[in-house]
Write a protein that binds this DNA or RNA. Sequence first.
DNA 1: TCCTTTCTTTAGCGATCGATACAGAAACCA
DNA 2: TGGTTTCTGTATCGATCGCTAAAGAAAGGA
Lengths: 210, 210
Amino acid sequence: MARQRAFDRDAALESALRAFWEHGYEATSIAALTAAMGIRPPSLYAAFGDKRRLFEEAVRRYQLTHGAFTTRALAEEPTGRQAVERVLRESAAEYTNAAHPPGCLIITAAVNCGPESADVEELLRGFREAAKAAIRKRVDDDVAAGRLAPGTDTEALATFFASVIQGMSTQSRDGASHAVLVGVAELAMAAYPPPPPRPDGRAAVRHTKP
Amino acid sequence: MARQRAFDRDAALESALRAFWEHGYEATSIAALTAAMGIRPPSLYAAFGDKRRLFEEAVRRYQLTHGAFTTRALAEEPTGRQAVERVLRESAAEYTNAAHPPGCLIITAAVNCGPESADVEELLRGFREAAKAAIRKRVDDDVAAGRLAPGTDTEALATFFASVIQGMSTQSRDGASHAVLVGVAELAMAAYPPPPPRPDGRAAVRHTKP
DNA sequence: TCCTTTCTTTAGCGATCGATACAGAAACCA
DNA sequence: TGGTTTCTGTATCGATCGCTAAAGAAAGGA
């Protein structure tokens, strides 16, 4: 054995994550990263490989921490409708949480990429596609369970909710408050289709007076 | 008088616009710009000042050409509801028009900016805020005209539709088709509130059989 | 205590960034 | 045709980019 690393690798990774979250992949220089992480370039390269691998590790960490609420919400709620509503509400809260940068790293951190880092753009695109597919799966489950009419356009629904979430990320970075984004989430739920008529022909249960 | 410029300034500006549209402000280098515009750096600087002023001029050009449909739709439609629906439908078409890069330049071209070009980020943010305010104005008009209930949360509505449009831009850049984005636009319109009850207590006009 | 190993530091690598100095070329006026 | 002016092309500026060689510093084994 020999000398051990003098900095907290996890804390440094979290600092890098936040720098990427704030300014994106290309606009965050090694100099900015080392300043944020409190280390010098050789320590960064020894511990994380290079800038791209550091970014990928930061994204993985983001998914397991700040961004884990979406996976949880989609896994835990009993119906697609409830799952989508929870994702929307928790996005409104997370994107405006003053304890960290606004918006979503996976949505915003690799938007303006030169041709030499197109694969980084593609990496985040893959995560976004996976998230949209996870939403669609829950909506498809609602169709299969009879909670949504057969033939419901679940691709359009999933793309719609993905769009609202991505727009909420942009809005939060433009200064929208938590309260306004909750309003956005509630409005978005108006697009979730009503349940189909029951097989006995009776109307669905009403929750308001006729 | 003396020697005149040997290239088409407008065509060069359009080429620069598309380069910025594709990769964003910082990720588009002077070398990439001069290659796309078919000129050498001194010609670029003589005709456009510097990179920032070239970008600002490209954004102005974008607003007057590819992005002008929003201003037109919001100005020409008789009601807020129709204005919003037209903006959504035309956004779906424009963002997926294969004749130019996908999505919206004003939404995507200055997302990942370093601290030294934070003012460029702020410039586009201002345009986005103005667009959202223009949407809100048309919704406010619907409230004033009695087409929407008094007390309607027009800020939430405007932020919702701005979010959907921004999300559609991201989705188009991730590969969503025109047809799917039209579906997104139609779903978004479900959030536009129904008209308030008439003063005589009768229900609003129905367009479908009871 | 010395040796080995790995980390940290200083310093700087080649490449590219935005932006220009300079000279040659082209268009107008006289 | 000569003089003036402005544009164009070459070649390059200092600064910064991602990244690393080399030497000093610290921790474990002998």
